[in-house]
Computed example of a mutant assay.
Amino acid sequence: MSSSVISEAAALGFEQLATTDLAPVEVAVIDSGVDATHPDLAGRVVSQWTVEGESGQLAVQPLDTGINNDTFGHGTAVAGIIARIAPNARIHDIRVLDARNKGDPTASLVAFRHVLAKRQRLVNMSLAIPASQREPLYKLCESAYQRNQVVVAAKRNVPVTDEGLPAEFSSVISIDNFQVPELSIRFIETGLIEFATLGNELTVPAPGGGYTVKTGTSFATPTVTAMCCLFLGRWPDLRQFELKTILKARADAAL
């Protein structure tokens, strides 16, 4: 990546970038499902899936596209943020969470393997997977990095035994919530989490066609996923470490 690309990417406003001719980017949302009938998401969700039991094993099952696949409301909010910021995002909905916003951690791993197989370029994970799954999750994130598939993951809102997995891994782009201006980003100098952006009191789509207000790292994360989607639409050959360089350059420019 040339210094001119870094400079241009750091200087371009996201609204300006969004109006340029961008290549489409496949974006997987591993979450509680997405309501593809919501007006903000109409025509933006190109596949829908759920992870369910099959012959005693969890497997990814295809669903009709264009349905309300959201069991809780979390995934629709996440997908809505991506769709609003990045007009070139082609959203793939993979439901792993239930009506309580809980899920078998193995289901997230099954979904992750599905995304790797489909070669979807961006993966939004606004969730944390238990430390018991650290080793298989680490291997999947390393595989994504080697395939140039970019994982953007949320820090835990409330620390338990870790900052949040896979957010702790260097092979992903990790996101915290911080009170900064909308569509700006902060670089975190210390610790395992690298970037922060606004995730407070965001008005987001809700299943059924309405809107709600959400706060948390889950909703800061898709903002950065959307930023990366815009960059990849303009410069499709960018690698994960180059996206991190651009994000840091934008953070530095805002100081």
Score class of each variant (00 low, 15 high):
Thr71Ala: 15
Thr106Ser: 12
Asp70Trp: 14
Ile30Met: 09
Val25Pro: 00
Thr215Leu: 01
Val224Lys: 08
Asn69Tyr: 07
Ala77Phe: 01
Val5Cys: 02
Ala167Pro: 02
Ser55Trp: 08
Asp98Gln: 11
Leu202Asp: 04
Arg44Ser: 02
Ala9Met: 11
Glu201Pro: 08
Pro166His: 03
Ile81Ser: 01
Gly53Glu: 15
Val204Tyr: 06
Asp35Lys: 09
Leu58Gln: 08
Thr197Ala: 00
Val96Leu: 04
Asn177Ala: 14
Met1Arg: 13
Lys214His: 07
Asp70Asn: 06
Ala144Met: 05
Ala131Ile: 15
Thr245Gln: 09
Ile30His: 09
Ile82Thr: 00
Arg119Lys: 14
Phe231Asn: 01
His114Thr: 03
Glu54Trp: 13
Ala83Glu: 02
Arg239Tyr: 08
Val60Gly: 08
Val151Ala: 10
Gly56Ser: 04
His92Phe: 04
Thr197Ser: 05
Val158Asp: 15
Asp70Leu: 05
Ala167Ser: 05
Val172Asp: 05
Ile67Tyr: 08
Arg147Met: 11
Thr161Glu: 14
Ala167His: 03
Phe195Tyr: 11
Ile91Asp: 00
Cys229Val: 05
Arg186Trp: 13
Thr20Gly: 06
Ala111Glu: 04
Ile6Val: 12
Thr190Gly: 03
Arg134Gly: 08
Tyr211Leu: 06
Pro24Gly: 03
Pro87His: 05
Arg147His: 13
Gly191Leu: 02
Phe195Arg: 11
Gly233Tyr: 06
Leu243Ile: 03
Ser3Gln: 14
Ala131Gln: 15
Gly53Cys: 13
Gln149Lys: 05
Arg121Thr: 10
Gly103Cys: 10
Pro24Glu: 02
Ala220Trp: 03
Val60Phe: 03
Asp64Trp: 12
Leu41Phe: 00
Gly56Ala: 02
Val152His: 07
Gln48Phe: 07
Val213Ile: 13
Met1Leu: 10
Lys248Asn: 11
Ala36Ile: 06
Ser55Val: 00
Val158Pro: 07
Val78Asp: 05
Arg90Ile: 00
Asp21Ser: 14
Thr203Cys: 12
Arg95Asn: 09
Thr37Ala: 12
Arg234His: 07
Pro87Tyr: 04
Lys214Cys: 06
Arg113Lys: 12
Thr197Val: 04
Ala86Thr: 01
Leu192Asp: 15
Val213Arg: 10
Ala28Gly: 08
Ala59Gln: 09
Gly80Pro: 02
Thr215Val: 11
Glu52Phe: 02
Cys229Ser: 13
Ala253Ile: 12
Ala128Thr: 15
Val51His: 06
Gln57Glu: 08
Leu192Gly: 12
Ala128Trp: 11
Ser171Arg: 13
Asn148Cys: 05
Ala36Arg: 09
Val150Met: 15
Pro130Glu: 09
Glu135Lys: 14
Phe112Ile: 03
